[in-house]
Every structure is written in structure tokens, then in C-alpha cells.
Amino acid sequence: MVNVSIARRYARAILDVAAEGNRTDLVAEQLNAFAAVVEHSPELSDVLLNPAYSRAQRSLVVESVLQALPTPADPALSNALRLLVDRNRLGYLPDIARLYRDMADARAGRVRGQVTSAVPLSPDAVTHLQQSLQQLTQRNVVLETRVDPAVLGGASAQVGGTLYDGTLRTQLEQLRRELKS
């Protein structure tokens, strides 16, 4: 079981260093990209997490992955990753990336949301929905879209802990309950 408090401490430290240089969003993108590369490559994950490999070998692998990122790695990120290798804490990387993103969003006044619809939404519809949710929440909303044919029609949006459900499936279920009673 991963200790979230350890991941939170590392995420907060990385955020504090990145915020000094006003680079929180850049570091968030790079940290998420690095974590995604590790997550999607079982071989890479094995090298980074397997104690059979030396710290020097893991350091070389981390440096190679950082060099392969589309933009040069921010010093805050590369130093943090070196520290994670030195302290044998790379197993916390997915949690660190998630917590860092959440902390950076909170600091910037953003909230993340997810919109689920039966068919892909047009960019105009996503923009309109985003603006409506921003008015409701009084915060800057960053939306991710997802397609799920099971909703039948309409859309549902989860922003923070609130679910705005305008799906046909939910309306039909509500109608069925009303007719039964």
C-alpha cells in the first residue's frame, strides 16, 4: 500500500520549487508525461522499480527518459526525479503526479471536470458547457470529455464532487421510478 502522505510531501515540495519560477503548469505537464511513459511501459517500470537494478542504472534510465521528453525537462522536475531515485521512491511517482496536478489546480483556482456523452461533443459544445460550468462553480473549469454509449443521449458533467446529470438514461430511470410509485 502506497503511503499518500509521502507522495503529498514530494508533490508539495516540487510545487513550491516550481512556483518560485512561475513554472507550475510546465512542470505539471512534464511530470504527467514522465509518469505516463513509465506507466505505459512495463519494461521501463520494471527497471525503475525493481531493486535488482542499481541506483546508477535507474538514474541513467531516468535521465534518458527526461531527454526523450518533447520539451527540455525543467530543473525542478529533473532534480525531484533524481531525488526520488536516490531515496528509492519512484514507486510513488503516479501519486506524486496526481497530487501535484491537484495542488497546482487549487493554487491556480482551477477545478477539473469530466463530461460524459453518448456521442463525441463538438468543440463548440464543449466550450459552451465549460462556460456554463464556470458560471455555476465560480471557478475556472478544465474539462475532459469521454464517450459512453450507455448514457443514450444528453451529457453528464462531474466537476469536483458535484455531478450535473442531464443524460437521457437518468431521465428515463427517474420516469420509471415515478411511474412505479
Results as ranks from 00 to 15, higher is better:
L66N: 00
A11P: 00
Y100W: 09
T24Q: 13
D86K: 14
L83E: 03
Y10F: 05
T116W: 13
L66I: 01
L143E: 09
A157I: 10
D165H: 14
A7V: 02
T167P: 10
L152T: 07
Y92E: 08
V147G: 06
V126R: 11
L84T: 02
E43H: 08
R98A: 12
Y164F: 15
Q158P: 10
A56V: 08
R139W: 01
D102I: 06
L90K: 11
A76G: 02
Y10L: 01
P75K: 06
E20A: 01
Q30A: 03
P42T: 03
R177P: 10
L81V: 05
D86M: 06
S132I: 08
S117D: 06
M103R: 03
L121R: 12
A150R: 13
A155G: 02
V141S: 07
A155E: 12
A155V: 14
E178M: 13
A13R: 00
Q131R: 11
A73I: 04
V151E: 07
L77C: 02
M1P: 12
V159R: 10
V159D: 10
A125H: 13
Q130H: 08
I14M: 10
R101A: 08
Y10A: 02
L83M: 08
S117V: 07
Q30V: 07
R110I: 02
L152W: 05
D25S: 12
V47F: 05
D124N: 12
L49W: 10
Y92M: 05
V27M: 06
S54L: 11
M1R: 08
G109H: 04
Q57H: 08
R58L: 02
L163W: 10
D102V: 09
T167H: 06
L77S: 02
N79E: 11
L77P: 01
P94V: 04
F34C: 05
A118P: 04
R101K: 12
E173F: 14
R12T: 08
Q174T: 15
V62R: 06
A68C: 04
Y164K: 13
R58M: 02
D148S: 09
G113Q: 05
L48E: 10
A125R: 14
F34K: 04
S132H: 12
Y164L: 13
L69E: 00
S122N: 09
L172P: 02
V159Y: 08
A33K: 12
Q67D: 13
A36D: 15
V115F: 13
Q134F: 03
Q138N: 15
Y92F: 14
N22E: 04
L66M: 04
D148M: 10
Q30H: 02
D95P: 00
S156E: 15
N22C: 03
S132M: 13
S41T: 11
G109T: 05
L93V: 01
A13L: 01
L168E: 09
A28M: 11
K180Y: 12
L15K: 03
S132T: 08
A35S: 14
E29D: 09
I6N: 04
L49F: 07
